[in-house]
Amino acid sequence: MGYQVIISVLSGKGGTGKTTVAVNFAFSLAAKGGDGVLLLDADVEEPNAGLYLKPTLEEVVPVSVPVPEVAKERCNYCGICADFCQFNALAIIPGAILTFPELCHGCGGCSLVCPVEAIQEKPREIGRVEKGRADFLEIWQGCLNVGEAPPVPVTRKLKEGLPRQKGKIIIIDVPPGASCPVVEAIRGSDYAILVTEPTPFGRHDLEIAFQLVQQLGIPHGVILNRAGTEDRAEADNIIEELCSTYKVPILLKIPFSPHLAALGAKGVLFSKVIPYWQEQFSQILSKIKERCSCANS
């Protein structure tokens, strides 16, 4: 393990309590003091860790991509740039060239292929990284602007300046699903926590998440949310069986309780108001550290 520990929190499907786990985990570690904890909200299309933590904003870093700027007096409307662009960010009609910066991915192809050097690039803001703090917890959040298509540049910027400091713990709240923004968010993690629930849906999506982290070679464990309580304890079998097939440990079970559900619904951190949960969440870290060091040695 390097200097810092990066732990991603993800789930194959939405609504399993991924953000709830990420914020409670980060808060519990931070509340224990000692090591610096940084929470990264990488769900850039719908960042809502801030809803629970209500941080104060300290710094805003704009994220931009280079987009074409055409020198009209040089352009001969040959159309080579528009033909080259895979994203349809340029259009040529007789006597005019139009650019559509919101479609541009910033590959630089148009200025490269232009035979008369009529295309320069200029930065265009597509989102921002917001850095803030809630009590002892440091929070960075990626935020894609309204109407922007590719979220990946924001995710990259968010992860670019990560502190390489011994003992630092970085927790990443990953977007739902298993598509390319998810891959970008969890790349380089030391460990992945997969959050699921004991339903056939939960099992199905957890299996997809297993395949994803295994492809990327990231050690991982499961947190079972809304687990069965005494009268429905057998409900958890559905996930336990899958975990034993894949040989993945269950790090923690959070039982279904109307009380916890109501706290979460109102945006209250349950680890903040119930010390038992703060303890449970902080213990996860030592379990993870054990597994990481095993994997490394």
Binding site: P47, L57, G147
Partner: peptide
């Protein structure tokens, strides 16, 4: 109107 995109929540 163009196709609506996602809106950031922002730390507030």
């Amino acid at each position: 109107p163009s196709r609506p995109g996602p809106q950031g929540w922002g730390i507030r």
